[in-house]
């Protein structure tokens, strides 16, 4: 049982939750994720870690509520408990001295990007970060990202904040003006796909962190499998980060819709109980 110690809504459907998980706080690294189960009838949901506090023994999760489990999680309050949290899962990000790192975060993908940006900065890299979202309210963790970035570019689809346009517009701008040695992109699968296509044109090594469907998160079920360089890999134990230019995003997008009907029906039923 893990106690929630802090909760804050970033926007209508995006919530940040800090929860007690002392062992995970101690051992997690940038790039790791956890699996949570809200109650004894809950499903296992993979979530990325945006921060950890070893002294307080807590980890921070940022969640966009889009289905039954994420809604239920958003309804919990400080003092409530999450039944199970297991982790840290997945391989941590390979942090090294690359030179200039272009970090791209879309929507709640900025949350897992934050510890990676921090780690690359602390390693001595120049870090340019692009935060992208549909609209101003959905830009999250801007102050924290600024703390560890040499430059931050904000992109919104509707132009309500920063520059108008999608993430790749910002990427093209940076690539046109300076040498980028590594790109890290985390966000919706479709965004990561287009980030990959953009950097591929310029042969910039690019890493993406995939958030596929999972059950156990320890290599047991294979629900998260995705083709990378023509080979089937498990996101949970082989990833979650892969060479973006080798990921079969179309297959991944299809697989992420594998339970769409069930998820939709369950969510409709759940909304009636609210």
């Amino acid at each position: 049982m893990n106690k929630i110690v802090r909760k804050e809504f970033f926007s209508e459907n995006v919530v940040q939750i800090e929860v007690e998980a002392p062992e995970i706080a101690r051992t997690r690294k940038a790039g790791n994720f956890v699996i949570i189960r809200l109650d004894d009838k809950g499903e296992r949901v993979p979530l990325t870690i945006s921060a950890a506090d070893i002294e307080k023994g807590t980890i921070t999760l940022v969640v966009q509520r889009i289905g039954v489990s994420t809604w239920k999680l958003s309804q919990l309050n400080v003092g409530d408990y999450i039944h199970d949290i297991v982790g840290p899962l997945g391989h941590p990000t390979h942090i090294y001295n690359a030179g200039t790192v272009l970090a791209c975060g879309g929507g709640v993908g900025v949350a897992p990007l934050l510890p990676i940006v921090q780690a690359f900065k602390e390693k001595g890299n120049r870090v340019v970060t692009i935060l992208a979202a549909r609209t101003k309210d959905l830009i999250i963790l801007e102050d924290e990202i600024r703390k560890y970035s040499d430059e931050v570019i904000i992109m919104t689809d509707d132009g309500s904040y920063g520059k108008k346009g999608v993430v790749t517009v910002g990427m093209e701008e940076v690539i046109a003006r300076e040498k980028v040695d590594l790109c890290v992109s985390i966000g919706p699968a479709i965004m990561m796909k287009f980030c990959a296509l953009t950097t591929q044109k310029y042969n910039i090594p690019t890493v993406v962190s995939l958030n596929t469907i999972m059950v156990d998160g320890t290599g047991m079920c294979g629900a998260c499998r995705v083709k990378v360089d023509g080979k089937t890999r498990f996101v949970c134990v082989d990833g979650p980060e892969f060479d973006a230019h080798k990921v079969d995003f179309n297959e991944m997008l299809t697989r992420m819709g594998g339970y769409k009907e069930q998820e939709k029906a369950a969510f409709e039923a759940y909304k009636k109980t609210l």
Binding site: K41, E43, R44, V215, M220, C221, G222, T254, R255, G257
Partner: peptide
Amino acid sequence: NANGIFSSNEYLTRVNLMHAADPEYDT
């Protein structure tokens, strides 16, 4: 890797451990 193709581990884990066939459960 088409949808609808599962490992036996996934299929059985959903039903046994996660009680997916029981409407009370979320999986």
